[in-house]
Write a protein that binds this DNA or RNA. Structure first.
Lengths: 207, 207
DNA sequence: GCTCGACAAGACGACGCGTCTCGCCAAGAA
DNA sequence: TTCTTGGCGAGACGCGTCGTCTTGTCGAGC
């Protein structure tokens, strides 16, 4: 039978999240062990096995929690443009808006606190379809839907062709950045993401 | 001191490649162990540790070998269009050529014999920069350079703007497919890759 | 005050790690 | 031919982590 969640220790849960994120950052995902997380968190191993099914599962929840905290903090501070986790700006200039957001994404991808855990989860997701789909569903796809929304607005404004599928269109500038980050296929710079936006909007063929 | 490669057993090398590829396909990368590869190949563990530094290293060489064999076979058969590992066709119609090659790539990505090992290596590469760079340098980048060559030809033909960087341009249609495959962010179909080519060539903005 | 179940701690057998020590055997030297 | 060399298959070894199980503690609700 499942454990009684009303008696669950919030203190342990938080300690486990913190320990998991710290260990992944410090020693890397492969050397992060359940035993290590338990020891660091001052927690019995059984407490981890009681609530999570695997190392990846722990890290996924820890990272979701971290993202939620970060989004909340950004929301409170009402900082626009630095890392708009909740919405993509709409100034009426699609090209400028996309360039701005992609530059912010570049900053986030290179932020060590986010890089280690998200790399670990992405890697696990490549080889473990269940983890992959959960990672995408809970973290990646919601971000991508922000682009869908912005592109739909652009279609109404006439800045993007009305017959295009926004969910595919966004991949033209998001996926190249993602691939460079995931697979080290090239450098990640503002100049690069700016070009991606330009190439995607105006096409490779001459006008 | 390094071992004497002139006395190396070719028989063992091949058996190790075969065992590694088979195990990754059958039980998955995480459950593939050096001990398991050795046992399956009928080989002492030390023989593996003598010539390779890690599980990823073994698999990388095994997969490179597999790819080389496949390319050689395709070359011999002179099959054009099904899986052109050596060159991208140039019929003068860039859109058609790219659609054809991307459709072939879709087939390859869904081929079980290639999928398991290449997923495993990609995953390892995400979290292990050294493996990642080797994977890219030896396997991925050579493939991408075929697109660079084809796009350069298209630029000379006037089918692609002369001021674009072909190495970035190719990412508009290759990376989205790669991301969907790696991260399960969406279905992979011919219709999808066809659209990628169209969107990339003619742009998102109205003409 | 009593019960119940999560908790920290850690013992347990299983297993893969990477290193090592054995004979065995084939190729080149004497 | 005989001798030497070094990779070879096999597997023992100590170590660390796995996931499970046991023990005693503690706090919340009846």
């Amino acid at each position: 039978m499942p454990p009684d969640s009303t008696r669950r220790s919030e203190r342990s849960r938080r300690a486990i999240y913190d320990a998991a994120l710290a260990l992944v950052t410090e020693v890397g995902y492969p050397k992060t062990t359940i035993e290590g997380i338990a020891a660091r968190a001052g927690v019995g191993k059984q407490t981890i096995y009681r609530w999570w099914s695997s190392k990846a599962d722990v890290l996924l929840e820890a990272f979701i929690d971290l993202s939620a905290q970060a989004a909340e903090a950004a929301d409170r501070a009402e900082v626009i443009g630095e890392q708009a986790a909740y919405e993509i700006p709409d100034t009426g200039d699609l090209e400028a808006d996309l360039k701005l957001v992609l530059r912010a994404t570049v900053d986030e991808l290179l932020d060590p606190a986010f890089e280690a855990p998200s790399r670990a989860l992405a890697a696990e997701g490549v080889v473990n379809e269940e983890v992959g789909r959960e990672f995408v569903g809970k973290l990646l796809e919601p971000q991508l839907q922000l682009y869908v929304k912005r592109l739909r607005a652009a279609q109404e404004q006439g800045a993007v062709r009305a017959d295009l599928d926004p969910r595919i269109a966004l991949e033209l500038f998001v996926s190249p950045l993602a691939q460079r980050w995931l697979q080290y296929t090239g450098p990640i710079t503002y100049e690069y993401t700016d070009k991606l936006v330009e190439y995607a909007l105006y096409g490779l063929a001459p006008r």
